[in-house]
Structures are given as C-alpha cells and as structure tokens.
Design a protein around this nucleic acid. Structure first.
Lengths: 350, 350
DNA sequence: TTGAAAGCGCTAACAC
DNA sequence: GTGTTAGCGCTTTCAA
C-alpha cells in the first residue's frame, strides 16, 4: 500500500505556535478570517501553508455538530440496479451538487433486509447531516428507521398513508405514460399493450395509471406485470403475443423492458414499428439509440433529479442549521417535493 | 424534510448515570464488553437500549484516529463512466466487502483537474482510513497528491517510473487479449484488426500488447486507436473498413466498442461472424447478450476486483493499525498487487 | 481585535 | 473488574 504517514499531522496548536498567535486566531483564519487583522491573517496563512495544516474533521464535527457529509442510501436488493446506468446518473448529479457545497457523499448500498439495521444505525450515529434515499419499495421499513435524520427521497415513497410530509423528487411518471400512450393512439394504434414495471414501486404504478388514463376500458389482457428487467420484458412480450396476437403497440415501463420486448418481437417476426409500435421510458442512452430500431421513449432527466434532491436537502439543512437560526435571517420556506416533467423522444420504434 | 430531532442525543455519560456505572464501563460494554462482569454488562445494555444510545463517531474518531470509512475515488472526467455498468459493479463488490468489515464507503467523483485538489484535501483531512482509486490515466497527478493515505489502485497505474510499489488489482488484460486473438486465429482468420481503448490507460495498452503478442508483424493498418466508447467504436470500424476492406476479424478493446463495430458492420452489409468475426472485452451484460449477434468476449470479474481491492486495503490497515501493532501479533505480509485471470466467453459473434 | 479557557463525547492509561 | 482522569483537536463564549 502506498506510503503510510507515521508522523502526526500538524494541529491548530502547531500553527498557532509557528505564527505566534493563539489557537483561537488560527481557527478564525482557517474558517474565513473574519474579524482578524490583515497582517495576522497573512502570518497565519503562511504558517498553515508551511506546515501543510489540514483541519481534523472529527474534532471539528465534535463541536460544530456538522459533518458536511450526506448519505446516499440505495436500497435495491436486485442486481437490476447495476444493469442500467440509472443510479450512476443520479449519483453524478448528486455528487456535483454536493461538491459545490463542500459536502461529501457517503454511499450506503443495501443488499437486503439485514442491511437496514446497519444503515439505520449509521444514520442515527450522526455521521452525516442528512440522507438521500432511493428506490424504496412499498412497505420498505427503512423510512421508519431513520427518523431524526433530514431526508429527501428519490421517487415518491409508496406509503399507504400518503407520503407523510416526506420531501421527494420524482418524474411525472403518470403524465409521461399518458403522453407515450397518446402518441401510440395518435399513430392509429388501437390494441396498445402495457408491460408494467415492478408494481411495488410507485414509478411502475404511476406509469400504469397513466396508461389506464388514456386506454380507458382497455382489454385487461393487454396489460402484463413485469419487473423493469430485460428478461422480464422478454417474458412479458411472449405472454402478450400469445394472449393477444392482434396487438399493434406496446408501451413498456422502461427502456430495458422495451429492449426485451423488441428482441422477442423480432424473434416472432413482427416488424417494428410497422406491425407493432414500441415506446419505452427513461431514455437510457445508449440503450435507446443502440436498440434496433432506435427506441421512441419518454425521457426523464435523471441527473437533474439527483442534483435537485441534493439541493433540496442542503437547502433544508441550511434552513434549520445553526448559521441561519442564529442570525434569525430570512428563514426560507421548508423545501417541498418536486415533480419533474418528462418529454417524449421520437425515434424509429413508434 | 422528514423529522428533525431537536433534542440532543444521549451520551455515554447519560447511559452511565442510568446504569449506575462509570463512563469507562459503558464504553467497554459498547465496544465488545470484554472484562466486564455479566450483570453489569446486562445493566448497561439495558440502559443503552432504553435511551437509544448511539456512539458519537466524531468523538470516537478523535481519540482512536480510526474512521471505519474508506474513500473510493473515481477519477473519470468523461461521461463514459456512466455509459456502462463497470463502476457500478466495482462499487458493489467494494461495498459488500466494506460492509462486512463495518466500514463505510465515501464516494469521491472527480469531474476534472479542479477536483483533484479538493479530493487531496479531503483525503489529507483524515476523514478516512484509506482510499481506493480508479481509472487513473497516465500522468494523473492524483497519486502524487494523496501521499500519506494507504491506497489500493483499481487497474495498474501507468507511471513511467514503474508502479512505485503501489498496490493494485488488475485483470490480466494482456493475457485475455492474447486469448481473444488466438481464438480468432484459430477460427482461420488471418486479417485480424484491433480497435484499441484509450491508450492513456494501461488496460488499453496491455490489450494492445496482447494483440501484438499474437499478431506479430501484423499490418499496422489493422490497428486503429479508439477510446472505449460506442461512438468511438463506430468511427474506428468505419476507418478500418475503408483502409482494409479485406479484414476478416476484429478484436475490440471492450464490449462497448465492439457494439459500435457491430453496428457499422451491419450498416456496411458485412455478416457477423461469417464475413467478419468480432470479439469484445469485459463481458458487460446485458450488452454482450443483447448484441446482435450475441458477442463473444473476454470476461473479467469486475465485482470480484472491487471486493479484492477493499480486502487488500483493509488487510493493510489492520496490519499497520493500532490493534495488531499493539499486540505485536502475527504481523501479516504487506499486501501486494493481484492480477485476476480472464476467461473467453464464446457466443455467436466469433 | 485577540487570547484564555471551557468543553464537545469519547477512549485508554492508570489507579483502586 | 471498575472507576478516575487526562486528553484527542477543535470552536466558541467570555474577558481583556
């Protein structure tokens, strides 16, 4: 392993000694330097430089009770998480926003129920200022375990008792689905099928609702439940074709599912879009572009969702944080949930 | 935002008072309970339970100088990072291993040169016990900036002056490439082309070397430089076809590149594998399986690489950590680099 | 404006 | 075994 620094890192004390001032003064300079006269600031800065001083965050947190760190909890037992770049994009957005606010990203991946206690303990341990929680399934016990930690959810949580005032960022899944299905109908398709996502997630439920909004009294046989995966999409498509050979369009709950459907349609000799038009959801490049034919889909801005989540959380933290409370200054609104619009991206498949 | 616990969390002191013992005893119980008599352990446990006590990590780190946290640094300015599930899989492996050791994963994504200083500062700030660093390009300044923090690299670093005793985990890129090309040659192909990866990364260089090992005195025109992306693969394939229309096989530096190549081959009316056989690298499902035809490729176990990196780092930390040093017990070997084997996965494309 | 001093909550010697 | 005590490195009143 690369170099092990055995010699202790310099402390405030050391810097103070070197600069010939008190610890308090060094602390002030390090934290912005307000109320310290210029020549002293200069002296301290130089000492910091020379000694390569870096504040010890543990000591600082101990007194300030701030950590400048945010936990990102991805509660997704399935391998699916890593089959599409969804989370990577969210992380990217989050990371950008946090970085801009000098906050760190602590990633908590949970593989199953066992991990919930661990995550809860961690969050309760006061390691982080807040949490961003993803991919909740209905009745996920996690939210109940993390009370006391400011949290923003990715996607509307699916609690039966409403969302209990939880703050979340979501796409307009229902509206997007409506637009997709309307597009298919506008193309003259009458037998529009729907392959759902995992119905224990609100995104899947909302997309199904959107489909139903447009296809009122649709043949129930045209809807088949699936799970957001490629393999699931294949299975679902086979089932649909067996059940309703006359279908002329498919709205799939996401692009991965649509890719599976496309493959089966090709297998079965159905031409896309001539025989069957297909629309996906997510606009997950390069899946959609690489698909054959390139996939018409509903785009959501994943990275922006991540960024927004982080922003809401940080804003909330500032609002309740010591800084603003002390000054009693413009106490901003408590942040509230945001639903981002989607857009239909037309390609060759529909 | 969900609930803001305003009342202060209980401290060791509070637990001690409640259990009628000293802080030291509580501390002992909380940290394993060695050397505390059973009835007391019980009393303390109950008090902890009742008060919902959770240790304050900042206070603990301040004295132990351990953080039970490891930074994962992904230094990848390109969007590419998020186009394939490569990092997600590594993260998964790392996360599993860290979790098993009660360590946290702090993710540091760097978007460009500007971020290096930030990352260096963070690492120097003693927030973490060690670092796992990925995706280094040649002459990346980062390694120079993080001296003092135990580090394991993902992929062999490409420093001109050797790897300076750095510990890394890598795949046998060269051997895997050899196997891929030998396979093509074994199929009777004589004009085997190679689309390289980004040659500022050792993985790309090693794969090129492996290709050359087998194709000694190959037509230099059969090798074209690319960048591990789908678009890059398309461009490279076009160039190759223009330059060497008689080529009968392509070894692409990764699956994404291969996918690009496949697309262009189809465009140009070349049948795969009859006219041109194609082999990729990575075995990035579902890319390889979804490809048309399904892609023959060199598989590397990405998740295992991640897990191994974490294991090496943790082992090294234990070795030098207070615990083992104090006891003077079996001082294990300093961990050394590991190169994982690859395997050829045959599908339809070659 | 600057410094002195009191902790933040915890662990680890060292006594008892 | 258990308790007492001295810090870990920092911020933050409070005086000067």
């Amino acid at each position: 392993m690369t170099e092990q620094s055995t010699e202790p890192r310099p402390t405030l004390e050391a810097v103070a000694a070197r600069a010939g001032v008190s610890r308090a003064t060094v602390s002030r300079v390090v934290n912005g330097g307000d109320g310290v006269r210029e020549p002293l600031v200069e002296r301290v800065r130089r000492a910091v430089e020379e000694l390569g001083y870096v504040p010890n965050q543990a000591a600082r947190s101990l007194v300030t009770r701030r950590h400048d760190a945010v936990a990102v909890v991805i509660a997704e037992p399935e391998t699916r998480v890593f089959a599409d770049p969804f989370f990577a994009l969210q992380l990217r957005g989050i990371s950008k926003e946090l970085t801009a606010h000098d906050s760190q990203l602590v990633l908590l991946l949970t593989e199953g129920r066992d991990d919930h206690a661990r995550v809860a303990r961690y969050l309760a341990g006061g390691h982080v200022d807040g949490a961003l929680v993803f991919s909740l399934h209905l009745d996920d016990p996690l939210p109940g375990l993390i009370r006391g930690v400011p949290t923003v959810y990715g996607g509307r949580p699916g609690w039966r008792d409403g969302s209990r005032g939880a703050v979340y960022v979501d796409s307009d899944n229902r509206g997007g689905a409506r637009e997709a299905v309307r597009h298919l109908v506008g193309l003259g398709r009458r037998r529009v099928a729907h392959i759902t996502g995992a119905l224990d997630q609100t995104s899947a439920v909302d997309r199904l609702d959107g489909y139903r909004d447009v296809m009122v009294d649709a043949d129930p046989g045209l809807t088949v439940e699936s799970d957001f995966t490629l393999g699931g999409g294949e299975r679902a498509m086979r089932e649909l074709l067996d059940r309703c050979p006359d279908l002329d369009a498919v709205f799939a709950a996401n692009d991965l599912t649509a890719a599976g459907a496309l493959r089966v349609l090709r297998e079965r000799g159905r031409r896309v879009p001539q025989d069957v038009a297909v629309v996906g959801f997510d606009d997950m490049l390069p899946f959609t572009e690489q698909a054959d034919p390139p996939l018409t889909t509903v785009r959501q801005d994943i990275e922006e969702m991540g960024r927004l989540m982080a922003r809401l959380l940080l804003r909330g933290l500032e609002r309740t944080g010591a800084a603003s409370a002390r000054a009693g200054e413009d106490v901003a609104e408590a942040p509230s949930s945001v639903v981002l619009p989607t857009t239909l991206v037309r390609r060759a498949s529909a």
